[in-house]
Nucleic acid binder design. Sequence first.
DNA 1: AAAATGGTGAAGGTAATCCTTCTTTAATTT
DNA 2: AAATTAAAGAAGGATTACCTTCACCATTTT
Lengths: 284, 284
Amino acid sequence: MEHLPFKLLVKEKFDHLSAGQKKVAAYLIENLDEAAFKTAFQIGRKAEVSETTVIRFSYSLGFEGFSKMQDRIQKQLLHQNQLDIPDGDTILPIDDMQDPFTKVIENEVHILRHLLDHTNVQDIWKAVDVLIQADQILIAGHRISHAAAYWFSYTLSSLRENVSLCSPTGDFYEKFCNLTNKSVIVVFSFPRYANEILKVAECAKEHGVCLIVVTDRLLSPVGRISDIALTTEENAETGTNSIASVISLLDLVIAGIHEKDAKRIHTHQQKLERLYSNYEVFNE
Amino acid sequence: MEHLPFKLLVKEKFDHLSAGQKKVAAYLIENLDEAAFKTAFQIGRKAEVSETTVIRFSYSLGFEGFSKMQDRIQKQLLHQNQLDIPDGDTILPIDDMQDPFTKVIENEVHILRHLLDHTNVQDIWKAVDVLIQADQILIAGHRISHAAAYWFSYTLSSLRENVSLCSPTGDFYEKFCNLTNKSVIVVFSFPRYANEILKVAECAKEHGVCLIVVTDRLLSPVGRISDIALTTEENAETGTNSIASVISLLDLVIAGIHEKDAKRIHTHQQKLERLYSNYEVFNE
DNA sequence: AAAATGGTGAAGGTAATCCTTCTTTAATTT
DNA sequence: AAATTAAAGAAGGATTACCTTCACCATTTT
């Protein structure tokens, strides 16, 4: 079983094919991804040959039948999707015992790279737009999630005004009543999903306030009721939910806001700069 | 026929599904690409339900049958692929959108990969030993660093007892007076280096308490007076001092403690587990 | 020009898959 | 506790798709 890419396999055998089968080859090379789902009959129609010729084509390539060939095409499409990691600097584990550290690092690199799956990117941009246009932003997270909430609140405050963080001791409702229907609530929720946060989210939904949720799975308790859900490890194999990936995810949001709202950020930061310098003068 | 992404469709209908169908939903969300090729029977087996339930799931989502649902999944996967993988010559607009993100990610991957080079691995091990043997641990960090301090404090608390975090409002001296000469202080300090933290560090030195500093440069104000310094980007080229790398660095410390002190952690976590379960009973 | 070789498409058989119906099981209400 | 309702699984029918066989056409050979 060689793991030669399918297209190269076709190229290799191309000269030995008959006229009709060359039509099939040409079509497959051009529309491989589309053909991964179609039936032999459908492919034949597109390539302007009969179903039989398509099946014979798979035999000519060395497969045991059309089904086997399609299996290979599908598997390749999957791997292309999941493992398109161009490992520029492949570091092989030199010593397993010496470094539990490299293991941790490589695991985090893996999670980082998966962050850019297409579904996420669109959601991130949506979140960026909402966060730019909101008149006020309220952020909440309990227990371990509070670290991320704190960081996000702090960073966002350096980009725009009217950002507020809920204290873990619980001042949510006091802050919530200041919001309008143009405001946004950002909540963080990871296992064990804190009950208080679920209530916060439900409150937001009830009052029609836009709800952005940062969570591990789309179907987590709060993920389900969110307007926008940002997820860290949808294909959860790890079990180690470090918060580092969460911060990285939020870094993307911050980068997006920078990209889209550079002008306002600049004026805001100048304002902050003046405040800081005043403060530091008093401090000395 | 709306063009709503499949995952969002699932999220929308999730609450109205039966228990068995929720299993199907969860499996599909996490393995959508894989499921695009499988048959209803195979999906049912993976989700631990019968083939029938899978088919009923498609009806619940509003499709005319399983086949129609799979068509939709396949079309979406195709669409995503065609946008994701430009064939070298065509650069699509989605790529421009994704570009600032890949830049951020690759930058963080770069930092991560070189974390083990720039930092002294020995320093991490030293910190691990000290943190295991300390009778008490006091953690402090201001402003943006407080997020990292909070996270580290929380995580460390799940591994051992007697971990305490200084509030940013300033309760350092109250907590400091409880320490002994076998205690450890961990402080976080990044630009702009908060003045309060420097004083905390100096106080620790004066009273001979072991001082671990997490900072950006070895020669930063607090780095210079530390017993152990853990640095993130010694050769700082980036300028973007995201806190993600700090968390990752601390992940290494946590991993090291796990490695060396697995037994005690286990008993500690069992204790926590009992407390949690009691708490959750009261909560309902 | 007749025969032979290789290739194609059409028709039919077989296996797989989707879908419906029926029975059983679990949960909820009266 | 009996009855009703909802849902899950099992079995069988119906459809679809793959594959084989056979007849026809084109090109080449004798």
